[in-house]
Design a protein around this nucleic acid. Structure first.
Length: 155
DNA sequence: GCCAACGTTGGC
DNA sequence: GCCAACGTTGGC
């Protein structure tokens, strides 16, 4: 069992959108970065837990968590010319991009803001701080516990 | 809106 | 394979 952090822009897709999915789960698609793709395709497993991170908003930070319900499969959007994420170099025989399914577990009572995370010395090695642009990133168990503890207490 | 960091593209 | 130019991400 592993832990991950997944980024999303809440204007596009938020923790509330995930919570309100009628089917109870969502396709985490549109990943178009090779490093993130490789993690998604090769490392992320069913049952892994994910932190949901809101970027490009105020405030940015971790807002909740979920669970992986389906391991990597080809992202259908890459084959659809009408789709924003269409990739003319991808084909069903040799897909280039992958996605997973996740389900909502919890929305935190408050946002664990990036600014707070930066202030915690024991979180200084989080990939979030080291490699800010990666949209799928591994989280260590100690980091996971720490973030959850921060979410549970008032700031 | 600005800027830093990083990724991608394409000429050579 | 290198490098410049350009594009994207994402915090502030």
């Amino acid at each position: 069992m592993a832990y991950w952090l997944l980024k999303t822009e809440p204007d596009e897709y938020s923790i509330d959108d995930l919570r309100n999915e009628p089917s109870g789960h969502a396709r985490w698609d549109g990943i178009r970065n090779y490093q993130a793709r490789n993690l998604l395709r090769d490392e992320v497993s069913r049952g892994d837990e994910v932190l949901i991170y809101h970027s490009q908003c105020k405030p940015v930070g971790v807002v909740g968590c979920g669970e992986v319900t389906r391991e990597a499969y080809p992202d259908p959007a890459q084959f659809d010319p009408e789709n924003h994420y269409f990739d003319p170099k991808a084909s069903p025989e040799s897909p280039r991009w992958f996605c997973v399914d996740i389900r909502f577990k919890a929305a935190f009572p408050r946002t664990v803001q990036l600014a707070e995370i930066k202030r915690e010395p024991s979180l200084a090695d989080m990939v979030l701080l080291r490699q800010g642009r990666l949209s799928v990133q591994p989280v260590r168990e100690a980091e996971w516990q720490h973030i959850l503890a921060m979410a549970a207490r008032s700031q």
